[in-house]
Computed example of a mutant assay.
Amino acid sequence: MAWLRFALTSTVFVLAIILLVPAQFIFLKTGVGPSAGTPMLFHRIVCRLLGFRIHVHGDMAKGRPLLLAANHTSWTDIVILGSLRKMAFIAKAEVAKWPLFGMLAKLQRTVFIEREKRGKTHHQASEIALRLAAGDAMVLFAEGTTSDGNRVLPFKTSLFGAAQVAIRDTDAETVTVQPVAVAYTRIHGMPMGRTHRPIVAWPGDVALGPSLIGLLKEGAVDVDVWFGEPVVIDAKSDRKALARTAEERVRAMVHTSLMGRDFLDTSESDAEPILKAAKNG
C-alpha cells in the first residue's frame, strides 16, 4: 500500500509542477496574475499529497514590514508555512542550485544568502530589508540550519539586522518581528516521539530525494504551527536581544507541542512558565 500511495501522490505532484510552474513563470515575467498566490496553492497541494494535518495556533501579524523568525526542522517547513499565508523565504545559497527545488524557490522569489561569507552580511541584509519595505512577509529560519526536530538550536543574530536596515534605509519607522514555531507531533495519529521524528526531520546529511520519497510513502503527519506574540522594534532596538527573545519564544512553543500540551488545555499552574517565556521572552 505504501508503494501504491507513492505512485499516486508522485503522479499528482508531477502534474502540479507541470501546470503551476509555467504559470508562475509567466506571472513573474509579465507582472500580471497571482504571482504571490500561486506558490501558496502549490504548497497546499503538496501538503495534501504528503498527508500533513496542520494545526494552527494564533495568526500571522498584520503589521508591515514583517519578519517571521522560525525554527527549522525540514524542507517541509517551507511547504507547511507557505500553504498558510502569502510569504517569501530566506534560504541558503546552495538551495538555488538544487535540482527542481532550486527552481521552485526562485519562482517564489526566495532571497538566497551566503551565511559563511561575513563580508556579504550587510548586502544581504539590505536585500531582505528592501523586500520587507515592499510589504513582503519574509521568513527567516534563524537557526541557520535544520535541527533533529526535538529541540531548537541557538538563533543566529546576523540577519536580524535586516529589520533595522529596513528602518534605516526606507521610510519604515518600525518593523514587526514575529516568532514562528513548527513542530511535528504525530504520525498516523500516534505520538511521534524522538524515535520517529527522523521520518520528517531533515538534518542536512540526508539526501533530499530519499526524504521526499519517504514522506510520499508514509503520509498522515500532524504538525503544529504557532504564530507567537510579535515584537515591534525601532532603530534603537538591540539586534542580539531581539534574536534571544525570538529564540526563547519559539523554544517555548515547540516545547509545548512536543510535550503534548496546548496553551488552551494546560492548567494555569503548568502553563504559567511556558506562557511567560512565549510572550515575554
Score class of each variant (00 low, 15 high):
9 T>M: 05
13 F>P: 06
17 I>V: 11
17 I>G: 10
21 V>I: 13
26 I>L: 14
37 G>N: 08
40 M>T: 14
40 M>Q: 15
41 L>C: 12
58 G>R: 02
71 N>E: 05
80 I>E: 04
83 S>R: 01
85 R>H: 11
87 M>F: 02
87 M>R: 04
93 A>Q: 13
99 P>W: 11
104 L>N: 04
106 K>E: 06
111 V>S: 11
123 H>M: 09
125 A>L: 03
136 D>G: 02
136 D>M: 09
139 V>P: 07
141 F>C: 02
144 G>L: 08
144 G>N: 04
148 D>H: 07
158 S>G: 02
159 L>I: 05
161 G>W: 05
167 I>Y: 04
170 T>Q: 05
171 D>P: 00
173 E>D: 15
174 T>K: 13
178 Q>N: 02
179 P>G: 06
184 Y>Q: 05
186 R>M: 07
190 M>A: 15
192 M>C: 07
192 M>P: 13
197 R>H: 11
199 I>K: 12
201 A>V: 09
202 W>H: 06
214 G>F: 02
215 L>C: 01
222 D>V: 10
224 D>S: 09
225 V>Q: 01
241 A>K: 12
243 A>W: 10
249 R>C: 11
258 L>C: 10
259 M>G: 01
269 S>D: 15
271 A>H: 02
274 I>W: 11
279 K>E: 14
281 G>R: 09
